[in-house]
Every structure is written in C-alpha cells, then in structure tokens.
Design a protein around this nucleic acid. Structure first.
Length: 283
DNA sequence: TCTGGGGTCCTAGGACCC
DNA sequence: TCTGGGGTCCTAGGACCC
C-alpha cells in the first residue's frame, strides 16, 4: 500500500496580504526542495502538498526529518505532516497534531481515530453540509459512515453523496495530480467602500480585464467564455457569462465580452466587488 | 470568522439539433 | 386533447478548498 504525505506549513495558515509575496516566494523555494525528495508531488496551494513516498527506501522517520529540516532551513517555519495510504487520510492526519506534529494513519485506525471526529474535519464538508448533517442528527464521521448510501444520494445527490459515503470510511482512490491544465484565469477586487459610480466600476473592470489578458498570454491560453461577477453591499452576488465564437486572448476582445456581461446586471445597488474570469480555454 | 482572492467541481434548467 | 428522446452546449448559482 503506497504511503502518501500531506504537509502543512505552520504556524498559522492564515492569509496575510502584507506577507503574501514573501510567503509565495518561500512556497516556491521549499516546493523545489521537496521535489528533490520525490518527484511525485501534488501542489495543493501555497502551503500544502501531497508527496508519494511509497517508492522511497528510507524509513518514515528519516523522510519526515528531511522534510522538516528543509522547510525549517528555507523558511524558518515548522510544518505538520500526515502519513497515510491515501490523500484523504494523509490530509486529515496532518491536521490532527497541529503545531509541528506527525500523524500516521492507516486502515486499522479508521474506526478508532477517524470515526470519533466531528464531520467538519472531513475534507469536502464545509459549513453548509455540516449544518445539513446536524439537522439529520449526524455529528461525527462515524455516524455519517453508518448512513446507507441511498440516504446520502437523496440528501446530497449522486456525486457528492457517493463521495461522503466513501470518505467517511477513509476510502480515497484519487491519484496524485502532478500537473494539471488551468481551467480558468480570474481577477477580482473588493472595493474599500461600496461603489455606486459607474465610471469607477467600468474603469476597474477594464483593469481586471487587462490583468486576466496578460495572465492568459503569459501562460499561452485563449478563452471563449468571459464571466463578470458583481457582489453588492448586501453580499448578493451575480455572474453573467458571455461565450464568443472564437478563442481570444486580447484585451479588446475580452473587454468587449466582459462589458456585454456587465450590461446584463442591474446595477441599482452599491457594488462591493467586481471580478472577471476567462474559461473554456485552449492552449 | 459579517467575509480577501484565486481556483475547482457540481447541478439544474433552457436552447437547439436530429 | 396532444405534447418523444437523446445529445450537446451554454448559463447561473452554490459549495468547497487553501
């Protein structure tokens, strides 16, 4: 059974806009170091990865020390690590001993260590699903695992229901994704204060379009669908998508589509956020 | 978490085609 | 009183992740 690890950078996985660039730089640095430990790495964000260490000859202890030392040396930060037969359990394990821990989970631990946990600890369960499950008197992962799959289908649909059924049993066959094609490029901003002025909204959208276009060209993609997003002061959020005939990456074409979408939103309230996304991509 | 920004995936419904 | 069925594309919104 292959072993995988997830690690998380500590001390706090909070988003700090001020430190963001430094954090991102450190992130790139230690990921390159981790790649020298094993090339089978899935990048899950700025401070988290999965590594497949099943082919390595060294013991878990030696590998873990190498990872911790490398991260400490490069970033000065600690990390927590989970080792398990799949990504789901490795991820949950990495959260179990937070500051600087190592948690090893395997199939035999599911009943004793996974099932007592609150449902919210299961990857993929957010606030909405948590409250839905609590209304069904389901509080722990074990109680979730006791539900027949049909019940989960009824409440959560076929796809997500099936996911919950398997995840609550610690089952996860998903492979490590070492590379994936981007599906979309986007930019959005939240205004310091809610905006009513159309000029400001239009100017901001044009700037975001420029950034998205630059980003796409930089990565060598064109897009057919451009989506505008508006969030009002009351947090109501609307999106309007425009699909064009030919794949495009130029600022003008994207701007045209973006403004066509914007026109279809009734801007009768103060605007808090505006964003633009390109999708339906082609290399 | 009265809420920042960049992503992914899923669902439901409508339009349109044969 | 009748109103098929399947496939594909597109849209809008929601849930979740770091």
């Amino acid at each position: 059974m292959p072993l995988r690890t997830a690690y998380r950078l500590c001390p706090h996985a909070v988003f700090l806009p001020v430190d963001f660039e430094a954090y991102a730089t450190a992130s790139r640095l230690f990921k390159s170091v981790l790649l020298s430990i094993t090339p089978i790495m899935e990048d899950v964000g700025i401070d988290e990865v999965f590594l497949d260490i099943s082919a390595l000859a060294d013991t878990n202890e030696i590998i873990v020390d190498r990872i911790k030392d490398a991260i400490k040396e490069i970033t000065g930060l600690t990390c927590s690590i989970g080792i398990a037969p799949n990504k789901l359990l490795a991820k949950i394990g990495s959260d179990m001993q937070k500051p600087e821990g190592l948690t090893i989970l395997n199939e035999n631990d599911i009943e004793s260590r996974l099932w007592p946990l609150p449902i919210r600890k299961l990857y993929g369960i957010g606030p909405k699903t948590e409250s839905h499950l609590k209304n069904m008197d389901i509080e722990t992962i074990g109680q979730l695992a006791a539900l027949p799959e049909e019940i989960l289908f009824d409440h959560f649909g076929k796809s997500y229901g099936h996911y919950l059924y398997e995840a609550s049993r610690g089952i996860d066959d998903s492979p490590l994704i070492t590379y994936w094609e981007p599906k979309s490029f986007s930019r959005e901003v939240t205004f310091q204060e809610d905006i009513k002025n159309w000029q400001v909204i239009a100017k901001t959208l044009a700037e975001l379009v420029k950034e998205v276009s630059t980003d796409m060209k930089h990565h060598g993609y064109k897009a057919r669908t451009i989506t505008v997003k508006i969030r009002f002061h009351d947090f109501k959020t609307f999106t309007r998508a425009t699909t064009i005939t030919n794949y495009a990456d130029s600022e003008e074409e994207i701007r045209k589509a973006a403004f066509a979408g914007l026109k279809r939103i009734d801007l009768n309230k103060r605007v808090r956020l505006i964003g633009v996304r390109s999708s339906n991509l082609q290399k």
